[in-house]
Design a protein around this nucleic acid. Structure first.
Length: 556
RNA sequence: GCCCCUGUAGCUCAGAGGAUAGAGCACCGGCCUCCGAAGCCGGUGGCGGCGGUUCGAGUCCGCCCAGGGGUACCA
């Protein structure tokens, strides 16, 4: 159990005991929140329960705190507790315990930061899912990095996580893509062919057309147009997906499942979903179309599922898709990461999930606000159709995958961010990401030197780690499991880069003050202890970097 | 109009109702005869506005101002 939870237990028990003894008036005891004080003077953990109880108990919070204190069976080897005005109880961990945690971290190794999970959930994180009508651009990168980071964190928190990409291969946009490709293909063969209205004008389409022409000659040109568009379209779709997959892999984003929208129709699941909605009383026929009666569930308006042309909307597909997630594949929890331009879709999808008989609370949609691009003074508008894409690939080539991930991971999804392309490139030479990686490389270098000198620190005595900077470093290292828990609960990966910075700072500060590999014989024992600490620090730093999907360099 | 997100340092952003609001970049000043100076130490500088709830508000509520997104038988 994490120490903070143990503390919550202790305080709760003390409060209940105080009530039993009449030292506190009876009444409900609120859930105890354990905080990490900013000021080190206030200890390692703090509880403000006395302040919260003061009003109901009609007592001075300091008095409450003082009465609670002796009732807490504080583990004497781990903690001591003190009362602080205006009514906090501050907990300090003992130096001895702190020192022993170095061994603990080393013992856990790469698993350090993993949480024991009594009730592991089957969780799906679906993200990116851009239409395969063009390459992934910078705007999607944010959701991509967010999703993969979140998945790593949930896995560390002990859940069974699956990362999924939903391929919208059945919609009207794909038709436009296919016809655009056909036109570019014919043009590559030197024929006159008009691009369709609202066609995809990007250079990559020209490239795809040329590729097809080179590989297949005029084979498709000799077919009837409808057939050619379909056959060529299949190829184009495959090609586009391969490009998308490769581009995402370049920023360390991978998926466990690539799910085809089309399969929902081929396997009859679309029909089953609609039938379920009908049975549950949420379908209505009106004006020649089929509607989802979302107003029955408190929505502002109903939504069309099947157009009067007989064509299903993407919303209908999405309902079938979510039926599949919950009722066919049985995910306990589904997390979708969408761009802000889909924000209006959230509540009706949740309503639809409810209409399928699934608790909508099992679906979480994280909206990542749009990334606005800026280059110099100019705002860049990324649009696939207009063709002025700034692709993810271009970005990764310029800034590098690690900086890219760190940058996107640092921001909370709900704040819109301005991505200054010039700045991103410029910062890549002087970026916080290198600060963290530098700490890791520095550690690697220290350990290399120690090995060269034939030092064996496996028997190092951690009780010699008494320096202020050593204690501060250990304290920081011990926060990772708590952080993983918080991030998994709140679905907020963006705390990780900041923590990694703090951890690196603690290490650099320690390094500045404490000589690790020393030639002096009388400092030998301390050296060995410090080498243990340094190695443990590397474990934590490496885990941070791996959770963020970044490399942990041995040298830079 | 209605709905969602956001206004925190010059810039980019963190801040589960707690104690003296933080970091990176930028700027100013110190620190390498010694394990990596891609580092360390110090300094300048800030919660859009007005009310309210609370022992306590950057955080919660209301109004105002500002920016972004959504509001289709588009995706």
């Amino acid at each position: 159990m994490l120490l903070k939870h143990r503390i919550a237990q202790l305080v709760t028990q003390a409060a209940q005991e105080a009530q039993r003894q009449g030292a506190l008036p009876p009444g409900p005891v609120p859930e105890v929140e354990v905080e990490r004080p900013q000021n080190p003077e206030h200890g390692d953990f703090a509880v403000s329960l006395p302040l919260k109880l003061a009003r109901a108990a009609r007592m001075n919070p300091m008095t409450i705190a003082q009465r609670l204190l002796p009732l807490m069976p504080v583990e004497e080897f781990i903690l001591e507790a003190r009362v602080w005005p205006p009514g906090f109880i501050n907990f300090h961990v003992k130096q001895r315990w702190l020192q022993e945690q170095v061994e603990e971290v080393l013992g856990q190794g790469q698993r350090y930061g993993d949480l024991p999970q009594a009730q592991p959930l089957k969780v799906q994180v679906e993200f990116v899912s851009v239409n395969p009508t063009g390459p992934v651009h910078v705007g999607h990168a944010r959701g991509a990095v967010l999703g993969s980071g979140l998945a790593s964190i949930l896995a560390a928190a002990g859940h069974h996580v699956s990362k999924e990409y939903y391929i919208n291969d059945a919609g009207t946009q794909m038709g436009v893509f296919y016809r655009s490709l056909y036109a570019r293909y014919l043009q590559a063969l030197g024929r006159e062919a008009p691009m369709p209205e609202n066609g995809y004008m990007g250079d990559y389409m020209v490239e795809l057309g040329r590729e097809a022409a080179q590989e297949h000659g005029d084979r498709f040109a000799r077919m009837p147009e409808v057939e050619a568009v379909a056959a060529l379209g299949r190829l184009g779709l495959e090609r586009m997906l391969a490009i998308i997959r490769a581009d995402l892999e370049a920023v360390g984003v991978t998926f466990d499942v690539w799910f085809n929208e089309g399969s929902l129709y081929e396997t009859g699941q679309y029909g089953e979903a609609m039938e379920l909605l009908r049975r549950n009383g949420y379908l209505a026929q009106r004006e020649g179309a089929t509607w989802f009666s979302s107003t029955l569930l408190g929505e502002d308006k109903d939504n069309v599922l099947v157009r009067s042309t007989g064509e299903p909307t993407y919303f209908a597909s999405d309902i079938a898709y979510h039926r599949n997630k919950f009722l066919v594949r049985g995910y306990d929890r589904v997390i979708n990461i969408w761009g802000a331009d889909h924000q209006g879709h959230v509540s009706r999808l949740k309503a639809a999930v409810g209409a399928l008989g699934v608790d909508p609370g099992r679906l979480t949609v994280i909206i990542s606000q749009l990334v606005t691009l800026k280059q110099g003074e100019e705002a860049v508008r990324a649009s696939k159709r207009k063709g002025n894409i700034v692709t993810l690939r271009e970005l990764v080539e310029e800034v590098g995958p690690d900086a890219c991930r760190f940058f996107f991971l640092s921001r909370s999804p709900e704040s819109q961010m301005e991505f200054d392309l010039d700045l991103a490139v410029q910062q890549s030479a002087d970026n916080p990401v290198y600060y963290v990686q530098y700490a890791h490389a520095r550690i690697a270098s220290i350990l290399r030197l120690a090995r060269e000198r034939g030092l064996d620190w496996s028997a190092g005595d951690v009780s010699l780690l008494t320096h202020e900077a050593e204690a501060a470093l250990i304290r920081r290292m011990l926060q990772l499991p708590e952080l993983v828990e918080t991030m998994a609960q709140r679905l907020e990966p963006h705390h990780l880069p900041r923590y990694a910075m703090d951890l690196a700072t603690a290490f650099h500060w320690f390094y500045q003050q404490c000589r690790v590999v020393s030639g002096e014989p009388e400092e030998r024992a301390v050296s060995l202890a410090r080498l243990k600490l340094v190695e443990a620090c590397r474990v934590v730093l490496a885990r941070c970097l791996s959770l963020m999907g970044m490399s942990a360099p041995e040298r830079m």
